[in-house]
Simulated assay, not measured.
Amino acid sequence: MKKLLIVSLGIIGVILVLSPWILILFGRNQLHDHDIPQQEQLVDDREKHLILAIFPHPDDEVTVSGTLMKLKEEGHEIQMVCLTRGEKGKSSGIEDEVELAKLRTVEMKNAAELIGADHLHLLDYPDSGLEKVGLDSLKKIVGELIAEVDPDVLISYDSKVGLYGHPDHRLTGRAVEEVFLEKRGMDGFTPQEMFQVTLCKKQIKIALKLSSSFQKNYPEDPKQGLPRPDFSINTRKFFPRTLQVMQAHQTQQEVLKDLMPFHDKVPTWIYSRIFDREYFREVK
Rank of each mutant, 00 (worst) to 15 (best):
S137G: 04
V106G: 07
M246R: 05
Y164T: 00
L210G: 02
G75Y: 08
V106M: 09
T251C: 09
H169M: 02
A117M: 03
D60G: 05
S128W: 05
A248V: 04
G13S: 13
S65G: 09
G13E: 05
Q247S: 08
S159Y: 12
I141F: 12
S212E: 12
V142I: 15
E40V: 06
S19I: 13
E99F: 12
P191G: 05
Y279A: 13
S232E: 00
G143K: 06
R184L: 14
Q41F: 15
S92K: 02
D33V: 08
T251P: 00
M1G: 14
D150I: 02
A248L: 04
L68G: 00
R228G: 04
V17D: 02
L71T: 01
Q203I: 07
E40Q: 11
D264P: 01
A111K: 01
K216R: 14
P219I: 08
T242A: 10
D44K: 03
C200Y: 04
P227D: 07
H249E: 05
Q39L: 14
V64W: 04
Q39H: 15
G10C: 10
K160Q: 13
F55V: 09
G75N: 02
E47T: 09
L4C: 06
L226W: 05
H121N: 07
P229Y: 06
D221K: 06
N29Y: 15
K102V: 11
L100Y: 05
P219D: 08
I146E: 01
Q192C: 05
R28Y: 10
Y279N: 09
A53Y: 09
L259G: 01
Q79D: 04
I155N: 06
R273D: 05
I11M: 14
L208R: 13
H263V: 11
K2H: 11
E282G: 04
S211F: 14
H76W: 07
E220F: 14
V153L: 10
E148L: 14
E254H: 10
S128D: 13
K48I: 09
K284D: 08
D127Q: 08
D187T: 08
G129K: 04
Q215D: 10
L120F: 13
V133M: 05
I51S: 00
P37M: 10
S137L: 13
S92I: 05
L120V: 03
L171M: 10
Q38H: 04
I233G: 01
I22K: 02
C200N: 15
W269I: 07
R241H: 07
Q39G: 03
T84K: 01
